[in-house]
Design a protein around this nucleic acid. Structure first.
Lengths: 124, 124
DNA sequence: CCTTTTCTACGAAAATAATCGTAGAAAAAT
DNA sequence: ATTTTTCTACGATTATTTTCGTAGAAAAGG
């Protein structure tokens, strides 16, 4: 089983998920738009993530190209699971209620959710 | 602004939220039901949490009584906020869909959510 | 060519979190 | 009364995460 990405690793994964295979330079530039971060810091993190198996890389060219080795939705699901356990004592419904109640949802979003619920009702 | 509780601190807060003001011994016993943890570890954590302002304590008796200084739902809301940012790029709806789709929700739970949605629709 | 820039690798420091050992006081047990 | 148990305080250690400096090779620029 792959280890859980840390917060910093997650920031990098977001970049890779949204932009596909990328060089260290590119990832670092993307991160740099939100907060200052040293180049070798990003490099080191990507190397660690490579050791962990969170990313794969192509070292043909001098500047290596990194790519996410874990799927976005799978990772989100895993992290969501432990988050629900830690913060909501395992009650996903509790979390949903909290998220819905707090977020200003648009009509379209609410409709989406209603559709999903009906689908679930017809399955179960 | 109070600092965000760490994972271990959160475990302790769960105990305090569910049982009200408690001694170190009681908290430690509760935690001990799920995993082995040294008494002084729990003590130390509670002392740190006290410094941070996450708990208040009564030191009248020899064994001090600790109480959560942060509300459960407020804390959950805060943590949910940063979690949504970190893992779901800020999209709470995305998280809700993921949570709903993945969780085996009971009919009662689904009804609850539908009711909440309708309430939201009538407000917005 | 020679200089400057751009890489990777590696190690280590800094920051944060978690765990525990020991000492000494107070209370409880015998 | 003496021993044993139960506390707190405090410091230190360990583990984990994050950050960065330096060295040396490769590429690019002049």
């Amino acid at each position: 089983m792959l280890p859980k990405p840390t917060d910093s690793e997650l920031e990098i994964l977001q970049v890779l998920w949204e932009n596909g295979p990328s060089s260290v330079r590119f990832v670092n530039d993307q991160l740099g738009e939100r907060k200052e971060v040293g180049y070798t810091t990003t490099l080191k993190l990507l190397q660690i993530m490579h050791e962990k198996g969170l990313v794969v890389r192509n070292t043909d060219a001098r500047s290596h190209i990194y790519e996410a080795a874990v799927q976005r939705d799978v990772t989100q699901r895993n992290l969501l699971g432990t988050f629900v356990d830690n913060v909501f004592s395992g009650s996903a419904m509790n979390l949903v209620m909290q998220a819905l109640g707090n977020h200003k949802a648009s009509r379209e979003e609410l409709d989406q959710i209603k559709a999903l619920i009906e689908k679930l009702e017809n399955e179960g």
